[in-house]
Design a protein around this nucleic acid. Structure first.
Length: 109
DNA sequence: TTTATGACTCCTC
DNA sequence: AGAGGAGCCATAA
């Protein structure tokens, strides 16, 4: 096994799992916390394998608070409903008050 | 094994 | 100020 690369994914899962209720974060924030600010895409890819890992991928959105990955969920607005269920308002796939619900791992963790 | 793509972000024109 | 291109690393074919 070697593969230190797994550390990156593993860390993403760990951070995503620690996202508090009613809060959201961005791929770049996680990537930055991991030291790979330019690898934000990998964070999103990591979410792809988050299924079966207790990782609330629906709490992770792009830097604009836009639900770019909602298309990857089962339904079409499943991600939105999950966030709304936590008290987060979403309009047109965009999180309202994103700055207020934004959770920075580098700041909180 | 190599090539291509992707749930993003930043820099430059 | 707005638009476009490049970079990042891992997964899939």
């Amino acid at each position: 096994m070697k593969t230190e690369t797994i550390n990156f994914f593993d860390k993403v899962y760990q951070v995503a799992k620690q996202i508090p209720y009613g809060r959201v974060t961005s791929y770049g924030a996680i990537a930055n916390y991991l030291g790979a600010a330019k690898s934000a895409r990998m964070v999103g890819y990591a979410m792809n394998g988050s299924v079966g890992k207790d990782v609330p991928a629906h709490r992770v959105v792009n830097r604009k608070g836009l639900l770019t990955g909602k298309h990857h969920f089962e339904g079409t607005n499943l991600m939105q409903e999950l966030l709304e269920s936590e008290g987060i308002k979403i309009i047109d796939n965009q999180i309202q008050g994103f700055d207020k619900v934004f959770w920075d791992p580098s700041n909180e963790l």
